[in-house]
């Protein structure tokens, strides 16, 4: 499996370390039901067979956190983004919503 790092180019997966599901959002610790929301956030996973958005860290390269969209049944990678860009876009959309 080779990951095309947006900064470094195509590299073997041994250069990267894996964190897991990138779709999880940390709940608001002051929100209602935060206890349950945190238990779900820490422990429960969709664990899909098929397309999966996941965090990889280019530890032996540019040290960027990436969000890789990968098929878990074929290992085909369809998209690689910088995690910071995804987070910035999410922040911008929150601000647009006011």
């Amino acid at each position: 499996m080779r990951i095309i790092c947006p900064y470094c180019g195509e590299r073997g997966n041994e250069e990267f370390s894996y964190l897991g599901d990138a779709s999880l959002l940390r709940p608001d610790p002051a929100g209602a039901g935060a206890m349950h929301a945190f238990a779900d956030y820490v422990y429960l996973r969709d664990n899909p067979r098929g397309s999966h958005r996941e965090f990889w860290y280019h530890a032996a390269g540019c040290r960027s956190w990436l969000i890789v969209t990968r098929n878990t049944s074929t290992h085909d990678i369809t998209r690689v983004e910088f995690a910071c860009d995804v987070a910035a876009a999410r922040m911008a959309s929150f601000e647009d919503e006011g």
Partner: peptide, 16 residues
């Protein structure tokens, strides 16, 4: 191998 998978096959860095 260390990443989510349903593929029943792994990758070479783990073999090494």
């Amino acid at each position: 191998d260390g990443y989510n998978s349903y593929a029943q096959r792994g990758n070479l860095p783990t073999v090494e």
